[in-house]
């Protein structure tokens, strides 16, 4: 780990100003950042500790949705009664991630920005375009069982590992940012970038920009949601494939459907193709399977991760069954 300066601003303005300098980074729970600093993958020369900022509240938003401060801990968000009742997909996704100790530290903002678990990204002795642009990608001809089948390029196939962000994708969350130029809001789907030729650029955050809030819109009446995570062991492991489903059925027909996937994409993956295949259709096995097929149609599997294509389809089908079955 490289030596670094450290500051603890008390206001958002000061934090943004402090982080304006080159090579400085915000630190929230530190569960991603400190880990990567120890591996010399992240090498900030200054850390701006945002834990003192007043961004730790979960409040109703004016449009009837929810406004989540960037510093709300993953545990607090998961167990929040509003979230549990109205956005159960989010609560389930959070509780399927990491361990209780990590969730107690991890924050909403930090979770959105967690880095990939690609083995080669985490070891500076390997070529990695994300860590060192232009150096190559050790994963493509290496062992890549955990890598992405959707959204990859010849430059990078690393998955975005977050569960929370997948649920937020299906909930059509918006990220609120504060930078030197002021405030702006970005739909979560537009917040993340696919690697293309610049895998080092994972999102649209400008240097120094702070995530202040995430907002969730209200859901249509009668909507149900579910997060299903599939992995090797029962707990404490990243997803091999996961599905976040938000759906509303009436009269046997699907009126509203949002489908997102984790563990398979280079970003938390929303599938508009699957949503189209569901919209207005009969809520049955045939429709679900068609949606799953549509979701994975663009998949480009490699030798070790080919199974993820089928696994992700099954996650979608099962999560749809769970959310549409009549009690």
């Amino acid at each position: 780990m490289q030596a670094f300066r450290y500051s603890q601003p008390k206001s958002i303005d000061n934090a943004v100003e402090a982080n304006g300098r080159q090579n400085s980074k915000f630190i929230a729970g530190g569960t991603t950042l400190v880990d990567l600093m120890k591996l010399n993958v992240e090498k900030p020369t200054a850390l701006v500790d945002v834990n003192g900022l007043p961004l730790d509240r979960i409040e109703p938003s004016s449009d009837g949705g929810l406004k989540i401060g960037a510093l709300v801990r993953n545990s607090d968000l998961a167990w929040n009664s509003n979230v549990k009742q109205r956005y159960s997909v989010l609560s389930e996704a959070l509780l399927a991630g990491a361990s209780p100790q990590l969730r107690n530290m991890a924050t909403t903002g930090g979770n959105l920005l967690q880095r990939t678990r690609c083995y080669y990204f985490r070891d500076t002795n390997y070529q990695c375009n994300k860590r060192e642009p232009g150096s190559g990608c050790a994963a493509i001809d290496g062992f890549h069982r955990i890598h992405a089948v959707l959204g990859g390029s010849e430059h990078c196939i690393a998955t975005h590992p977050s569960d929370m962000a997948v649920a937020m994708m299906a909930l059509e969350a918006t990220v609120h940012l504060r930078g030197a130029q002021g405030e702006r809001s970005v739909a979560l789907n537009d917040f993340y970038l696919v690697p293309g030729t610049t895998p080092e650029k994972e999102n649209v955050l400008e240097p120094g920009e702070l995530i202040t809030y995430v907002t969730l819109p209200p859901l249509p009446q009668g909507t149900r949601s579910h997060y299903l995570k599939l992995r090797d062991r029962a707990s404490y492991e990243f997803a091999l494939a996961s599905a976040a489903i938000v759906v509303q059925v009436s009269g046997g027909k699907i009126q509203h459907a949002r489908v997102a996937m984790g563990g398979v994409g280079t970003k938390p993956w929303r599938s508009k193709e699957a949503e189209q295949a569901l919209q207005g259709r009969e809520a049955n096995e045939h429709t679900f399977r068609a949606a799953a097929e549509a979701a994975l149609k663009p998949a480009k599997p490699l030798r070790d991760n080919a199974f993820k294509v089928e696994l992700a389809k099954r996650a979608i089908v099962r999560a749809l069954q769970v959310t549409t079955q009549t009690a």
Binding site: Y119, R233, S235, Y236, E237, F238
Partner: peptide, 15 residues
Amino acid sequence: LNNNFADYIVSTNAD
């Protein structure tokens, strides 16, 4: 490659 406890998985209580 999986030389750590996140990537070398062993049984958890839940298993």
